[in-house]
Simulated assay, not measured.
Amino acid sequence: MVSFAPGFELPPFYCPVDEALHPDFDELRQRCVAWADNTGLYGNDAVERAWGLYGTHADLAFARCCPVAPKERQYILMLWALWVFVGDDNHHHDETAVGLTGRPGGPDLKMARMVDLGGRLLCAADGPDQVLSGGSETVQRLSRTNAEIVNMMRSVGTATQVQRFLDRQRQWVLGELWLASVLELGRVPTVEEYTMQRHSASGGLPGFELAAFAQDLRLSDTERNDPALVTAISAANLVISWDNDLISYPKEAFHGEGKGNMVGVIAHHLNCSPQDAVAEVTAIRDRVMSLFLGLHDKLSRSRNSQVRQFGDLLSHFIRGHLDWSAAIPRYREITDHKTPPPPDLPPITMEWTDTPSDTRMTPVDIAPIAGWWDQLK
Results as ranks from 00 to 15, higher is better:
residue 275 Q to T: 13
residue 329 P to N: 06
residue 332 R to M: 06
residue 285 R to W: 14
residue 252 E to T: 00
residue 255 H to F: 12
residue 251 K to A: 03
residue 302 S to G: 06
residue 252 E to G: 00
residue 257 E to W: 01
residue 292 F to Q: 02
residue 310 F to S: 13
residue 263 V to R: 04
residue 262 M to D: 14
residue 308 R to D: 09
residue 311 G to E: 04
residue 309 Q to A: 15
residue 305 S to M: 04
residue 272 C to A: 14
residue 263 V to A: 07
residue 325 S to K: 07
residue 248 S to E: 01
residue 312 D to W: 12
residue 335 T to N: 04
residue 325 S to D: 06
residue 313 L to V: 09
residue 269 H to S: 07
residue 283 A to N: 05
residue 328 I to A: 08
residue 282 T to N: 13
residue 296 H to I: 02
residue 280 E to S: 14
residue 279 A to W: 01
residue 262 M to R: 06
residue 247 I to P: 05
residue 276 D to T: 14
residue 255 H to D: 05
residue 282 T to I: 02
residue 254 F to T: 08
residue 244 N to S: 09
residue 289 M to Y: 07
residue 259 K to G: 07
residue 278 V to R: 09
residue 310 F to L: 13
residue 241 S to R: 04
residue 331 Y to W: 02
residue 251 K to V: 02
residue 314 L to C: 09
residue 262 M to S: 11
residue 282 T to Q: 13
residue 326 A to V: 14
residue 291 L to D: 10
residue 277 A to H: 10
residue 276 D to F: 03
residue 298 K to F: 07
residue 258 G to M: 01
residue 260 G to M: 02
residue 262 M to H: 12
residue 271 N to M: 10
residue 244 N to I: 03
residue 297 D to G: 15
residue 324 W to A: 04
residue 272 C to N: 02
residue 270 L to K: 12
residue 282 T to K: 14
residue 260 G to K: 00
residue 247 I to K: 02
residue 312 D to A: 15
residue 298 K to Q: 12
residue 328 I to C: 12
residue 303 R to W: 09
residue 251 K to F: 01
residue 297 D to R: 12
residue 268 H to G: 09
residue 314 L to G: 11
residue 312 D to R: 15
residue 325 S to E: 06
residue 256 G to R: 06
residue 299 L to F: 11
residue 334 I to F: 04
residue 293 L to N: 10
residue 276 D to L: 07
residue 272 C to L: 08
residue 260 G to R: 01
residue 309 Q to S: 15
residue 283 A to P: 04
residue 278 V to W: 04
residue 275 Q to L: 03
residue 316 H to T: 09
residue 264 G to L: 05
residue 299 L to G: 07
residue 257 E to K: 09
residue 273 S to D: 10
residue 288 V to T: 06
residue 281 V to M: 01
residue 244 N to V: 02
residue 318 I to M: 08
residue 331 Y to L: 05
residue 259 K to Q: 10
residue 248 S to H: 00
residue 277 A to Y: 12
residue 327 A to H: 12
residue 276 D to V: 07
residue 311 G to L: 01
residue 310 F to W: 14
residue 265 V to I: 14
residue 300 S to I: 05
residue 289 M to V: 06
residue 243 D to W: 08
residue 258 G to P: 10
residue 242 W to N: 04
residue 307 V to T: 15
residue 315 S to M: 05
residue 321 H to W: 03
residue 291 L to S: 08
residue 312 D to I: 03
residue 248 S to V: 01
residue 258 G to D: 05
residue 307 V to A: 03
residue 305 S to H: 05
residue 320 G to C: 10
residue 305 S to K: 00
residue 267 A to N: 08
residue 293 L to F: 14
residue 287 R to I: 14
residue 327 A to G: 06
residue 321 H to N: 12
residue 253 A to H: 07
residue 309 Q to R: 13
residue 304 N to L: 02
residue 305 S to R: 02
residue 276 D to W: 00
residue 259 K to I: 11
residue 317 F to L: 03
residue 318 I to K: 04
residue 291 L to A: 11
residue 334 I to N: 03
residue 304 N to R: 10
residue 251 K to C: 00
residue 308 R to V: 15
residue 283 A to E: 09
residue 246 L to W: 10
residue 258 G to R: 07
residue 282 T to A: 09
residue 288 V to W: 03
residue 256 G to I: 01
residue 249 Y to I: 00
residue 267 A to L: 11
residue 328 I to H: 11
residue 291 L to K: 09
residue 247 I to W: 03
residue 289 M to K: 13
residue 284 I to L: 14
residue 268 H to Y: 15
residue 300 S to P: 01
residue 304 N to T: 13
residue 255 H to K: 01
residue 294 G to Y: 03
